[in-house]
């Protein structure tokens, strides 16, 4: 029992036997996974496999029907029962989420998009603004702080969204297909930023269709299909030597 506790404490996120259905359609079946501090986990799989739903459950946007979700060994969801609202709000400060469609606030400047939430949480305004400017610089967006989202390219908007999530100083960052809404020539700049975060040992879970990227940056790859985890492991193992036929079948499409 003591062993189990230390094991789960090393994991920022642990999910056990997670279940989720929309009406009669079961989209997550007995999903278990854990994410260690400093690791990057990629989730790949065909559309409709439940990858995004899994991230949305982990970030409480979707209400799971059963199982456990733990942050730092503490239950946010225990046997299908959620912690109190106040506790969930506290868990929420541990993670950030980057959406496929950025979801920047169009009426806010870039700087306000990035800085408003921590200021609303009572942090010192000047400190937050300094941090926001540093993050924008890091995202290659120096000089864009006064721009509005519509004035930016998709790739720039997504980097603002990443800066916005990072400004909350999350312990783990989720990416829900961060490059799927981008023109092909813009995906590189976003992937580069995520790669840089991986080198800095930011803990991340990335749902992606960018296979070379997943292979290069991940410590672990999870292949999902039809609501179950079919296979997971070292990226070289999963990509170069998949054990399951379903995985081989999926990866074959990308080889062509």
């Amino acid at each position: 029992m003591a062993d189990k506790k230390t094991e789960s404490a090393a994991n920022i996120l642990s999910i056990r036997s997670l279940e989720k259905s929309f009406g009669s359609l079961s989209v997550l079946k007995d999903i278990s996974l854990s994410v260690e501090r400093g690791n990057v986990v990629s989730i790949i799989g065909p559309s409709g496999s439940g990858k995004s739903t899994l991230l949305r459950c982990a970030s409480f946007l979707e209400h799971a029907d059963g199982g456990d979700i733990l942050y730092d060994g503490q239950y946010a969801l225990h046997n299908g029962v959620y912690a109190s609202k106040a506790e969930l709000n506290r868990f929420r400060t541990r993670f950030g989420l980057v959406f496929q469609n950025f979801q920047l606030f169009p009426h806010y400047s870039v700087l306000r998009n990035v800085s408003e939430a921590p200021i609303l949480h009572g942090e010192n305004k000047d400190e937050v603004l300094v941090r926001a400017m540093e993050l924008l610089k890091k995202m290659g967006l120096e000089g864009k702080e006064k721009a509005y989202p519509y004035q930016l390219s998709g790739g720039q908007q997504q980097r603002v969204a990443i800066a916005r999530a990072l400004c909350m100083r999350p312990e783990i960052l989720y990416f829900d297909e961060p490059t799927s809404a981008l023109d092909p020539e813009l995906t590189g700049e976003v992937l580069k930023v995520i790669r840089q975060l991986a080198e800095e040992k930011m803990t991340m879970v990335v749902v992606t269709h960018e296979m070379p990227f997943a292979k290069a940056v991940s410590n672990r790859v999870i292949f999902m299909a039809d609501g179950v985890i079919v296979e997971q492991g070292d990226p070289r193992e999963v990509f170069d030597n998949p054990k399951e036929e379903r995985t081989r079948q999926f990866l074959r499409v990308f080889e062509r």
Partner: peptide, 30 residues
């Protein structure tokens, strides 16, 4: 207003009132 705007605000820890007054209403008025 796209549901994603509410979700983005929720993940960033905006309260329901903050989300409506700061994120939704200004866009609605326009």
């Amino acid at each position: 207003i796209p549901v994603g705007q509410y979700e983005a605000a929720e993940v960033l820890g905006y309260t329901k009132v903050q989300t409506f007054m700061r994120i939704i209403l200004p866009q609605v008025i326009k």
